[in-house]
Simulated scan of single mutants.
Amino acid sequence: MDIFAIEGMVGLLVRFGLLVVAIFAFVISLMHPAEEYTAAGKWTKQGWTILLGLGVLFSFVPILPFFLSLVFVIAAFVFLADVRPALRGLRRR
């Protein structure tokens, strides 16, 4: 196996991992009611769902520029690191 085949395999695994993160964030965004987003002081459910849904959709398009893919991946990580804990905190009260 040459170095380019290994590099291609690693790139494919990274893209697949990021796709899994995007799908997970999208599904989690659908599970919470819109009122919880407002109560947590976060962006609306509709806004997050559209943004994360576009991220999942565009993950299947390998032609997109790296910058655009990076924006959607960062959005998914922000949702999982900031919004999801705030929404989960509301359920514990």
Rank of each mutant, 00 (worst) to 15 (best):
A25W: 05
A25R: 05
A25C: 07
F26P: 00
F26N: 04
V27F: 08
V27N: 02
V27E: 06
I28G: 00
I28N: 07
S29Y: 05
S29D: 04
S29W: 01
S29H: 03
L30F: 09
L30C: 08
L30A: 07
H32R: 07
H32C: 00
H32F: 15
H32L: 13
P33D: 10
P33G: 04
P33M: 05
P33T: 10
A34S: 12
E35W: 03
E35P: 00
E35T: 12
E36N: 13
E36F: 14
E36I: 11
E36V: 13
Y37R: 00
Y37P: 01
T38R: 10
T38K: 11
T38Q: 10
A39T: 11
A39Q: 14
A39R: 14
A39D: 12
A40C: 05
G41M: 06
K42A: 15
K42H: 03
W43A: 14
W43G: 08
T44R: 01
K45M: 01
K45Q: 08
K45Y: 01
Q46I: 14
Q46K: 13
G47F: 04
G47D: 03
W48A: 06
W48L: 04
T49N: 07
T49R: 11
T49F: 04
T49K: 02
I50C: 03
L51S: 03
L52G: 00
L52V: 01
G53N: 04
G53P: 04
L54T: 11
G55Q: 05
G55W: 06
G55T: 11
G55H: 09
V56C: 13
V56L: 09
V56K: 05
F58L: 15
F58S: 09
F58W: 11
S59G: 15
S59H: 06
S59D: 05
F60P: 00
F60M: 10
F60C: 06
F60I: 12
V61H: 00
V61C: 08
P62T: 10
P62Y: 02
P62S: 09
I63Q: 12
I63M: 11
L64S: 03
L64T: 09
P65A: 11
F66M: 09
F66Q: 09
F67N: 01
S69L: 14
L70I: 06
L70W: 09
V71C: 08
F72T: 04
F72M: 04
F72Q: 02
V73F: 13
V73E: 10
V73G: 01
I74E: 00
I74C: 09
A75P: 02
A75I: 06
A75N: 04
A76F: 01
A76Y: 01
A76E: 07
A76V: 04
A76I: 07
F77M: 14
F77P: 00
V78S: 03
V78C: 08
F79E: 03
F79M: 02
F79A: 03
A81T: 13
A81I: 12
A81D: 00
A81G: 07
A81P: 00
D82K: 12
D82A: 11
V83W: 02
R84P: 00
R84M: 13
P85M: 08
A86C: 10
A86E: 13
A86L: 13
L87I: 09
L87S: 07
R88S: 11
R88C: 03
R88D: 13
L90K: 08
L90I: 14
L90V: 12
L90T: 10
R91Q: 15
R91L: 14
R91G: 11
R91D: 11
